[in-house]
Design a protein around this nucleic acid. Structure first.
Length: 419
RNA sequence: GUGGCCGUAGCUCAGUCCGGUUAGAGCACCUGGUUGUGGUCCAGGAUGUCGGGGGUUCGAAUCCCCUCGGUCACCCCA
């Protein structure tokens, strides 16, 4: 056990191979899915002026207690980003790219909270944001992209929950209806939920406490408080999802933790994860956010998917396996190691992955290392081969057959064997 | 931020309740059996601040306190 100062800080960890390879593969797959729909990558800074994130809502936990905020040496109040939507929208307001602005991103976010499985202080997300269109078909496209991404990972047990919070006015009216409902039954509400009610009535609906179950079930439904316009928007979203065969569940009590959401909201739950952290992704519309950042009134919609949790879901479903081999060829040099210097370089130059052993170990030890490397073939060089300008190529995965070939033929032989 | 459980070799864990010779096992690792050949087998070997600090005691992995970390639930979310 290492001294505590030399361990990764609480809530962080090292992504070691093969997890790191799988991590990269996931991001590459996401880039491919987003790219297939014309989204372009954006890489926002990992920290911003704290005001950027205060737009997430002063009553949200993300802002109230989870922000990694500090003063820099220039006296600025800076915060590590707790999510990327606010940064992407800030970048939009700052640069005013042509509309529609369709962006995807991947990278770490930071929230100061108590870590547990699937919840870290530094956690990665991939996501998309689109600024410009108000079109409900765009909401559906965004949701569909996330759905197809999960499909391509191989996930089959993801449930899509959708809801509408209505327009900003609808939402405000609904919050008052909720407040009235809970206040009329205050003594039936848990103590914790009473505190939540005071700051953010919507999130009382999120309570998982048994004491609140009945009152929450009886609460007024958002979908009954939608204006005609918002109801039509939501109907168009679900119709488009039907049209592309993306299955969903309407969840009238789906609340999301950030205050900027209006109209469409959605969440992806991995049913293979029975932990409390089974939300693997979520998003929605944020039509007012760009204007708050100084841009003209510009509607927006997007989602973020948690990389860690998505991979946990993949584990639970036994899909998206990590790679097994880091190299194709392992060079075994029984002459002291000089031969391997040249052979490994030549094999790599031919586009194959090659590793070797060090410190002049015995041939047996080198063969063990070759086996463990998961390489498919070993290239062996001893005094005989050195003298005759040949190498021995040995199969490591099948029957162990080997042949001694001229060095000039080596890369051709290797390519043929590895095909 | 609140509460429960946990922390012994690289990994998985036994030993902790009822304190007592040099702290163990399996796997992994190294060397040899096979002076040029891995994956099976056999023999041998190396490896521990018993998470950290303090206390109780003749004596602490074992009991007590604090602390760090993990984990589960709440909160919240990815």
């Amino acid at each position: 056990m290492t001294d505590h100062a030399f361990r990764a800080p609480k809530g962080t960890r090292d992504i070691m191979w093969p997890d790191s390879a799988r991590w990269r593969a996931l991001v590459e797959l996401f880039a491919d899915v987003a790219g297939s729909a014309g989204y372009l990558e954006v890489v926002p800074p990992m920290f911003e002026h704290v005001e950027v994130f205060q737009r997430l809502g002063e009553a949200t936990d993300v802002v109230r207690k989870e922000m990694y905020a500090f003063e820099d040496k220039g006296g600025r109040t800076i915060a590590l980003r707790p999510e990327q939507t606010a940064s992407v929208v800030r970048g939009f307001a700052e640069h005013r790219p042509a509309l529609p602005y369709k962006a995807w991103y991947a990278g770490p976010n930071f929230r100061y909270e108590r870590a547990q499985k699937g919840r870290f202080r530094q956690f990665d997300q991939v996501g998309v944001e689109v600024l410009g269109p108000h079109d409900p078909h765009l909401d559906a496209e965004v949701i569909t992209l996330a759905w197809r991404f999960y499909e391509r990972l191989g996930l089959r047990q993801v449930r899509l929950l959708v809801n509408s919070l209505g327009s900003a006015e609808d939402r405000a009216r609904y919050v008052e209806a909720l407040r009235a409902h809970f206040e009329a039954n205050l003594d039936a509400l848990s103590e914790e939920s009473r505190a939540t009610l005071a700051t953010n009535p919507l999130r009382v609906l999120d309570s998982k406490r048994d004491a609140d179950a009945e009152l929450v079930a009886d609460a007024p439904r958002m979908l009954d408080h939608l204006s005609d316009d918002a109801a039509a928007h939501f109907a168009a979203v679900t119709a488009a999802l039907d049209a592309v065969d993306v299955p969903y569940t309407v969840a009238p009590r789906l609340v999301r933790g950030l205050d900027y959401y209006v109209r469409t909201t959605f969440e992806f739950a991995a049913e293979a994860l029975d932990a409390a952290q089974n939300a693997v992704g979520g998003g929605g519309r944020y039509d007012g956010l760009a204007a708050e950042m100084g841009a003209p009134e510009t509607p927006g919609v997007g989602f973020a998917l948690g990389v860690d949790r998505t991979l946990l879901a993949c584990d639970a479903e036994g899909v998206f396996a990590p790679p097994t081999a880091a190299v194709d060829v392992f060079v075994v040099d029984a002459t002291g190691g000089d031969e391997a210097v040249v052979l490994a370089d030549r094999i790599r130059a031919a586009g194959l992955r090659a590793d070797r052993a060090w410190d002049g170990r015995s041939m047996k030890a080198q063969m063990k290392a070759a086996d463990r490397s998961a390489a498919a073939v070993a290239v062996i060089v001893g005094e005989d081969e050195k003298a005759s300008g040949t190498v021995t190529v040995r199969d490591l995965r099948g029957d162990g057959g080997q042949e001694t070939v001229d060095r000039d033929q080596l890369t051709d032989i290797l390519r043929a064997r590895l095909r």
